[in-house]
Amino acid sequence: MELRVLQYFLAVCQEESISKAAQTLYLSQPTLSRQLKDLEKELGKQLFIRGNRKIALTEEGMLLRTRAEEILTLVGKTKNDIISSDEHLTGEVVIGSAETRGVKELVTVMKSLQSHYPALRFSIISGDETQVLEQLENGLIDTGIISGTVNNHKYQVLPLHYTDHLGLLMRKDDPLSQTDAIHISDLKNLPLIISRQMANERLLEQYLHLSKSDCRVVAKTNLLFNASLMVEEGLGYCLCYEGIIHTDDASALTFKSIEPAITFPLKMVWKSAIQMSKPTQKFIDALTNYEKRLQ
């Protein structure tokens, strides 16, 4: 299986048409069709369902699309890591992180590094903690920002200065907004909007000590912005971290902390058993020094 053929395959997936993909690849349609048939023959599986106007992927085709994207990403990243030099640092540092205001610490370091190495690039890939660790395990990201625990034999850990505070996002005209803080007992039977990670990690039971009968979860989402729209429309109250959604004078929303405080210190993690690329190692060193200055 050649990388070139995987690129052809992904082009067809994107265009949903062999003829359109052939145009973007500057290939003849018969040539591209033959390459795809050879790929299906090599794998022993049908990858496409060919329709009159568009083609769709089979289950095996969808799996190959995911793997092909991962393979080509790793190839490009490996190439950049190898050609990068210490003096003229180039390449990309890929960081996985959930939505958190703590990313500002990383951005401060990114800005400082880019002033010295203009060709250095950064990517932040959003995802919940499970997704971040999965991408880290598969080599799709260099480091991850999480708040949970990890195997210290498997991962290197750098504690960050920032700590997420859990609270409730609500409308300013809601009666609860007049209170100084939200108590855990106030959450019982409220219509709650929570992240999918909170649902998966059973945060309501583990940290808030609320049983399923105490909670009324009306919606789950993986993007806090979408959750804020639900709150604006009066669907419910969003259980989230402070500082991610703006609640200034122009906003219809406000954030109230939960008491007693429920906090989640952030940390950056990366795999112990691999050789870091020069850009990633430079970023880790710079962030480590930055965190020491904050202590």
Rank of each mutant, 00 (worst) to 15 (best):
N189L: 11
R171P: 02
E2L: 11
Y26N: 13
A227Y: 04
S177D: 07
Q281S: 15
L266G: 08
Q114A: 10
R196E: 15
L266I: 06
G167T: 08
I182H: 03
L187D: 11
L74A: 13
F264V: 06
K54G: 03
A250G: 06
G44N: 05
T288W: 02
K172L: 00
E129P: 00
M268D: 06
F9I: 12
M230C: 02
A227P: 06
T58S: 15
L63E: 15
A11S: 13
I83Q: 13
I184W: 04
I262A: 09
V75M: 04
E92F: 09
I184P: 06
I284N: 02
E92D: 10
L158T: 05
G76A: 08
L166F: 12
E137N: 12
A227D: 10
D81M: 04
I193G: 12
M276L: 15
G236K: 03
L168H: 12
G91M: 13
Q295S: 12
D285P: 00
E69K: 10
N189Y: 09
S17W: 07
A199D: 14
K37Y: 06
Y290D: 07
P191C: 09
V94E: 04
T100I: 04
A119Y: 08
L158A: 02
F255M: 04
N151F: 07
L187Y: 12
K172R: 02
D128Y: 00
S28G: 15
L10W: 05
A227H: 05
E15K: 07
S213Y: 10
N289C: 03
N289K: 08
E137H: 14
L113A: 08
S97Y: 02
G51P: 03
